[in-house]
Simulated assay, not measured.
Amino acid sequence: MLRKLYDWVIAYSAKPSAPWALALVSFAESSVFPIPPDVLQVPMTLARPERAWRYALIATIASVLGGLVGYAIGALLYESVGKFLIDLYGYGQKADAFREAYDHYGHWVILLKGITPIPYKLVTITSGFAHYNIWWFLALSIITRGARFFLLAGLLHYFGPMAREFIEKRLGLVTFGLAAVVVLGFVVALYVM
């Protein structure tokens, strides 16, 4: 099953609609969706390494725009939508502590959590909820999301052929590792934030 899914994503990467799918996942991940855009960016970049930087730019722009939606959810709709999403991911009791952290370390919270596997939607929604300065939020989001996606693009561009061979030989192990990173991000956010 994993092999079919992987092969489908690799084949899909050649289609003109692939960048739109990456943009959609990147946008949604920053506000409501639990799956990180890496699951598309990695195979798309491995299939089309000459487009590594383009895919990173698409993921960055879409993620930042989605982050603005997450910010708006936190600022304008926290009691209805924002609280529901935070509770859905199991972080409801941490929201007030996270908001207090913004009073002292807001910029560091965005920079550090935006590049880690911690779900970025928690940062975006809580930034709006904390009424963190939207211009600083936007600037820091561009920096941190850009760093994450362009670093990944650089690694894949440089190590692409070796990475593709490794992934294709050990697809189950790689999938388990990616799932573990996503779960670890949720656990860290739940117990460290």
Rank of each mutant, 00 (worst) to 15 (best):
A130T: 05
A75G: 11
I167V: 14
F186Y: 07
D103Q: 13
A21K: 02
I61T: 14
A72Q: 13
I167L: 09
W135M: 15
V192M: 11
G82L: 06
L40Q: 00
K15N: 15
V42A: 07
A56S: 03
L24F: 12
F166T: 15
A14C: 14
L111D: 00
A47E: 06
H131I: 08
Y55R: 01
Y102Q: 00
G185F: 13
L40I: 03
Y105F: 14
G67A: 06
W53I: 13
V81E: 08
T124A: 05
A62M: 09
G90P: 05
A56L: 03
A52F: 05
A101H: 10
G146M: 02
L77M: 06
G146Q: 00
I143F: 08
P19G: 04
V174K: 03
K4D: 15
S17I: 11
L24S: 07
L155I: 15
A147I: 00
A21Q: 08
L171D: 15
R148P: 05
A153M: 08
F186P: 01
A75K: 08
L22R: 11
L122D: 04
D7E: 11
R164F: 04
A95W: 03
I118D: 04
A62S: 12
V183A: 10
V39L: 01
P119M: 08
L22W: 13
S80I: 11
S30M: 14
S141R: 10
T144F: 03
K83A: 11
F137P: 01
V81I: 13
L57V: 00
P19K: 00
L173A: 10
I35C: 06
F33S: 00
W53E: 12
R54T: 06
V183C: 08
W136E: 08
T126D: 09
A59K: 01
S31M: 07
S127P: 05
L152R: 11
S127I: 01
F137N: 03
I118K: 05
L76H: 04
A97Y: 15
I58Q: 04
F98Y: 05
Y132E: 01
V183K: 06
A28R: 13
F33Y: 03
R99P: 01
I142C: 09
S63Q: 02
V181P: 06
L22A: 05
L46I: 13
M44G: 01
I134R: 07
L173G: 08
V182L: 01
L22C: 05
L22Y: 14
G177Y: 13
I167A: 10
T124C: 00
S80D: 10
L24R: 12
F166M: 12
F129T: 01
G82H: 04
N133F: 10
G160W: 06
R51I: 13
I58P: 04
F150A: 11
Q41R: 09
G114T: 02
S17R: 12
A163G: 06
Y12F: 15
V188W: 02
S30Y: 11
V32R: 05
A189I: 04
R54G: 12
A139E: 12
F176Q: 11
D96F: 10
G70V: 12
